[in-house]
């Protein structure tokens, strides 16, 4: 990687962190409605993973999607505008926090029914296989999604049809408030891929370079026509499942322990130790991210609400 690429990854991670902190504030100010699931703590997974994709590769994820949106190239402006329900948001204000997408950037959402987007990912991979494209579909989901039937139907189909799909589980240790140990028959989620003869690997989801390395290798496999691959990233969310989570299911000490391995901290120390960047350069990136978020909030706040007529647009493509 060139220096600029290293710095870009740092910028994306910091931008996501600032965006999520800002979203939490906006939520507390009642400017964001509905549910709000923050990505704080997991930034390295999406950042490293998506940095490994080619432009033709599709990305689809679950409802914790703000970070993924940033990594696929959507501006903080459009993300925050969507959070505020504005016409300038990624989904014209009709999707909200859980339903962001930009098809032009090959980001296919933002899906809020646990596991339901996995069969969709299989279908998109089928579309690329059918048309003879070398694109891969990168499908991200949480550990909780691996206990639902959709997961098993989709994994099975992907292997039976040898589909170019990269399954990526972000194991953040909890499905809402239920730990993996209490919800999943196997502790290491990737073992489930063995049940479908899908080759798999596990990597440290707190280390953006480990994530990237694992993703590059996995995508090479998928793109070479060898069928699906399954990646597990071990990670942790520092905030609650969503805003208003009472967090009775874990101790403060556990969070503090994981904070020792903060993905941004790890990467920052690495860049300085390896002399890829100076502290001053990183601080400048942090200030730049801060400014971008402030500008994005300004943009979102001053953006128009969707017109009342928008209520009835886009129900169907064709009226008849």
């Amino acid at each position: 990687m060139k220096k600029q690429e290293y710095l870009d990854l740092y910028h994306q991670m910091v931008l996501i962190r600032r965006l999520e902190e800002c979203a939490a504030e906006l939520y507390q100010q009642d400017k964001i409605g509905g549910f709000l699931h923050l990505y704080i703590g997991q930034e390295a997974v999406s950042t490293g993973l998506i940095s490994a994709r080619q432009p033709q590769d599709r990305v689809i994820t679950a409802y914790r999607d703000h970070g993924v949106a940033i990594n696929t190239g959507i501006g903080a402006k459009e993300v925050i505008a969507e959070l505020l329900g504005k016409a300038t948001g990624t989904s014209k204000g009709k999707g909200g926090s859980m339903h962001m997408a930009d098809v032009e950037k090959n980001f296919w959402g933002g899906h809020a029914i646990v596991g339901a987007h996995l069969p969709l990912a299989a279908g998109m991979a089928l579309g690329d296989q059918y048309m003879g494209s070398d694109a891969a579909t990168i499908c991200m989901f949480g550990d909780g999604a691996t206990n639902i039937g959709f997961f098993h139907e989709a994994l099975n189909l992907s292997k039976v049809w040898n589909l170019p799909v990269l399954w990526v589980v972000e194991n953040n240790q909890y499905g809402m408030g239920t730990s993996v140990a209490r919800a999943s028959a196997v502790g290491e989620i990737r073992q489930k891929a063995d049940g479908y003869s899908i080759p798999n690997a596990i990597a440290d989801g707190m280390d953006v370079l480990s994530v990237r390395k694992a993703a590059v290798k996995a995508l090479k496999h998928v793109r070479s026509g060898k069928g699906p691959f399954f990646l597990e990233f071990t990670t942790y969310r520092y905030r609650g499942h969503s805003m208003g989570d009472p967090e009775r299911y874990r101790e403060k000490e556990e969070i503090a322990q994981w904070e020792q391995t903060d993905p941004i901290g790890i990467y920052q120390r690495y860049l300085i130790a390896e002399k890829i960047a100076t502290r001053a350069e990183l601080e400048e990136i942090e200030m730049q991210a801060e400014a971008e978020i402030m500008e994005a909030v300004e943009f979102a706040e001053t953006s128009p609400e969707p017109a009342p007529e928008e209520l009835y647009t886009d129900v169907y493509v064709q009226a008849g």
Binding site: L118, P119, L120, A122, G123, M124, G127, Y130, A154
Partner: peptide, 11 residues
């Protein structure tokens, strides 16, 4: 689900 995904890609 796979039908939906394939339709999204233009099939």
């Amino acid at each position: 689900g796979a039908g939906i995904g394939a339709a999204l890609t233009g099939l």
